[in-house]
Amino acid sequence: MTKALPLLLVAGSLLLAGCGKTRDVLPPEAWQPAPAQAGTGAIDQAGTVPPPEPVRSTTLAGSQAALVEAAGSDTILFPFDSYGLDEKARQTLGAQAEWLGRNPEVRVSIEGHADERGTREYNLALGERRANAAKNFLAAQGVGTERMSIISYGAERPAVDGSNEEAWALNRRAVTLVVSGR
């Protein structure tokens, strides 16, 4: 906790800075006087509005976007009623592990999900198993278990709305989420 606190503060200030930058709309009172002073009806220099400053988004190191960029995806999918990792899932997790190795300050939460075709209790348990399977794989690749937490949402938070095989396939998943970084 003592270590996490400063990190959190840093992350928080970054976030605030980011927010301030994008909010380049002037406060209302700054442009209100302009029309009132226009005696001739022509807009004088003070009333002109400069074009907005350009903003280009940048992937921050240690962010969720950086993870996705490096690993190809933050999500792995599972077959029906299974928590086994297929080749594709292993590849994705392997890349995630590599990235986590390069970003040792990052902590992640792994969310496990199930499709809607199970009882509520069983789905919660199954989601937990999926998250745990991903965590175990990452741990085997050298990611410290103290950097990972897991949580199951069962079928409560589908990625896709729909009651068909395609939607269920996308909803049977484990998602690696960056919870703290730089």
Binding site: E121, L124, A125, E128, R129, A131, N132, A133, I151, S152
Partner: peptide, 26 residues
Amino acid sequence: DSMSFAGRFSPDGRTLVFSVTRAGNS
């Protein structure tokens, strides 16, 4: 420190039974 869920009281209300997960098992 892990998930607990699916609770139900005993008939006398004194006991609550539920599941706790541990390393993927419940």
